[in-house]
Amino acid sequence: MSVESLSIRALAAGYGGARILKGIDLEIAPGQITAIVGANACGKSTLLRAMSRLLTPESGEVLLDGTSVHATAPRALARRLGLLPQAPQAPEAITVLDLVSRGRHPHQGIFGGWSAQDEAAVAEALELTGTDALAEREVAALSGGQRQRVWIAMALAQQTEVLLLDEPTTYLDVNHQVEVLDLLTDLNRRRGTTIVMVLHELNLAARYADRLVAMRAGEIHAEGAPGEVLTETMLRAVFDLEARVMDDPVSGRPLMIPLGRHGLRANEREEARR
């Protein structure tokens, strides 16, 4: 599978006159996992929406292998770039198999026609996400973690080389958060899919992403490997948070521990006061 490049050039965008993104320049590392982090309302989701076709930029451009995403026909784009919105809604009384099959929509002609290739893509997506046993169940009857795996399966059936996800772990218990991120990493390692996701949970972002992008007030504050980006200085600047950053004993990636005002050991309290 060829690896597509995704570059963002001087991108400015917003809603109804309010400019949220103020000139973003960013190269998405092909074949890697990039996590976008930042405080609420910093423009993370807006950036993701502008990278797909959901939001038309005021100026600047998003280039997928050199051609503008916004100048590409939606269906053609959807065969190369997938998007999973935050908290997507499942239609009433729909089964897992049917939901996942809808990922094949951009690959089908006007008069439908279900091919062996479609069937293989759906079967593979179900298997990769471990949802094949759920195929005949109704999506509404599943647990939150299962449901998110089903949505990811739908995005996989789309077979794009780039996959954008807006907070894929929101509303999930911590075990399911880890499960979903493990799954996305499997996908990235096995198929070379470029993954860009907005994540709230900083430690999980540092743990699972190859690259971190920290945003603040519509601009990119820092970008690079987790060890370079997740620093005490960055946390202060982007989140206005006093925190300690140390090596995660499990992964060796940076681990952030907020200081807060309560529950500190005596020596830490001394230090925080100074």
């Binding site: 939606p74 269906r75 053609a76 919105p85 997507p88 809604q89 499942a90 239609p91 939901l99």
Partner: peptide
């Protein structure tokens, strides 16, 4: 049918 999953998901699947 795809739009029953919401406008954003449908747009992500290439629906105008």
């Amino acid at each position: 049918e795809v739009m029953r999953m919401g406008d954003e998901t449908a747009a992500g699947l290439g629906v105008r």
